[in-house]
């Protein structure tokens, strides 16, 4: 079981959280301009990274906040957790 550090509540067991998958997926700003392929990309295509991965978790039976987790998907080691805000998400953009 993972021990996850909620940025609001501290370290708790994995069973208190629910998983939200890949983080920083951008909702299209101009939906009308999108073709079917772009929509498929937004809705379905995922990085599914093997290695260091930025993902979102929800402290669903705790404070119910969404937050970001950087985790190694092979060793499952959690590198860091941080609050979900535009700074955190934009720094992902520049990578």
């Amino acid at each position: 079981m993972l021990l996850i550090k909620c940025p609001w509540c501290g370290e708790r067991d994995e069973t208190e959280f629910s998983y939200g998958g890949e983080a920083a997926i951008k909702r299209p700003l101009k939906p009308k301009d999108l073709n079917d392929k772009d929509w498929a990309d937004y809705l379905f295509m995922r990085k599914n990274t093997r290695g260091l991965f930025l993902e979102q978790w929800n402290h669903s039976v705790g404070c119910r906040q969404w937050f970001l987790v950087e985790r190694n998907t092979v060793t499952y080691e959690i590198i860091s957790t941080k609050r979900m805000n535009s700074d955190a998400l934009n720094s992902e953009d520049s990578q």
Binding site: E14, R50, Y76
Partner: peptide, 13 residues
């Protein structure tokens, strides 16, 4: 297990 994982092992719960 709920999360993405390439480790060929999962959680005890």
């Amino acid at each position: 297990d709920s999360y993405i994982g390439y480790g060929q092992r999962g959680s005890f719960h």
